[in-house]
Write a protein that binds this DNA or RNA. Structure first.
Lengths: 207, 207
DNA sequence: TTCCAATTGGGACGACTGTACCACATCGGA
DNA sequence: TCCGATGTGGTACAGTCGTCCCAATTGGAA
């Protein structure tokens, strides 16, 4: 219960924690490679080069394992966001650069990666059916909206609600559409679309 | 091969076709109720009150059954779109009404239904991993963009690309975010957001 | 009516799944 | 040194899955 070790309130060991972390890493890797359905005890154990029983020892159920993997991915996304926000180019920048920043923020990586994005949006569907995940995903989205507002303000663009929220929604929708597009060009197109919208925002008052 | 009956080039019977249709209906119902993973032979057969073997008799594989269910849902979505487009209120309309029309068009129902929308977006994730589905979903999205452009033109709003595409993407993103929101209010909020954007579009030139 | 393809439905198979069990190893503090 | 908590790993079990098989039945054309 204390830290999540399989058995009761035992004291975990550093080595044990390392193994547990390795399992979470493996679960996250499987999740991003092949989706939620592929995150089985056996697949994760094999990926981590650990025996099957390790998964049941460190996680009470498959759901816990999946949740841990989602949080791990979320943490990485958040790290990337912080890196982006700290390395923000100084204020006067053409819309191309601002669009790059925003897309990179939402996509959680410098370059939108189809496999990763697939998991990203599959998570929404999962969250809709699992009450536990719903809150996490909701909070994640809120965070993204706040960060987007910060970027807009930083570049002197209007950032009053609901504009940032609408912008994030649009980028989400565009990335989603880009995923079913034939090639990577559809994903690159997203940046041009966002740039165009930013240009329009500079003129119109509301958005 | 001819019409899709399980066995070779046999001549299907009206009753057989009815049974096949019943299975597709059941598969679509299960799909919208509980998602892709829940569409199993047994679940579909039980839903249709038919023996298990009926599913393997009429469909070569589970994938075929799922694909048929997706197409059935797509057909319903398309019917709804046509109904909306034919019952379009005459040209001068406040943005509230236009927003209603657009959201209803994208959501595929008069009122956005969480369960249905969940399947709607889960489909994107599935399409990303199944080449067969990808084309269908891509075509579906293109159709939606064209219909949206038609509605915009009908109400004297700018409808040059990429505006309709961006609008559809935004509605998709908003509906997605509304799904992980706590209650239905988040989904109703979508219409207000769209209305606001329409107001901005009337002013700004590009979008 | 007769007949044969179309259909039906019950059951079985092997391959997975999550999870539990248990004998063994290991390691840190008394 | 010992000893018990912690960690390890091989295996087993019950359940569900997709798919297949096959005997019985049906219904429309001859």
């Amino acid at each position: 219960m204390t830290t999540g070790t399989g058995r009761g309130g035992r004291t975990p060991t550093p080595r044990g924690e390392r193994r547990r972390a390795a399992l979470i890493d493996a679960a996250a890797a499987v999740l991003e490679d092949a989706g939620f359905a592929a995150v089985t005890h056996r697949a994760v154990a094999a990926r981590a080069a650990l025996p099957l029983a390790a998964t049941t020892y460190y996680f009470a159920s498959r759901g816990d394992l999946v949740t841990a993997a989602v949080e791990r991915i979320g943490a990485r996304h958040r790290e990337h966001a912080h890196a982006v926000l700290h390395g923000l180019p100084p204020a006067p920048q053409p819309d191309e650069i601002v669009a790059d920043v925003l897309v990179s923020l939402v996509a959680g990586a410098d370059e939108p990666d189809p496999a990763r994005l697939l998991t990203f949006y599959e998570r929404y569907a999962q969250a809709g059916r699992q009450p536990g995940l719903r809150e996490r995903v909701g909070a994640w989205t809120d965070e993204l909206v706040d960060q987007t507002a910060g970027v807009l303000r930083h570049y002197g663009l209007p950032a009053t609600e609901p504009l940032p929220r609408l912008l994030v929604a649009m980028v989400d929708g565009l990335l989603l559409a880009g995923l079913v597009g034939a090639d990577r060009a559809a994903l690159r197109q997203v940046r041009d679309d966002v740039r165009q919208v930013l240009g329009a925002i500079r003129v119109g008052p509301t958005g």
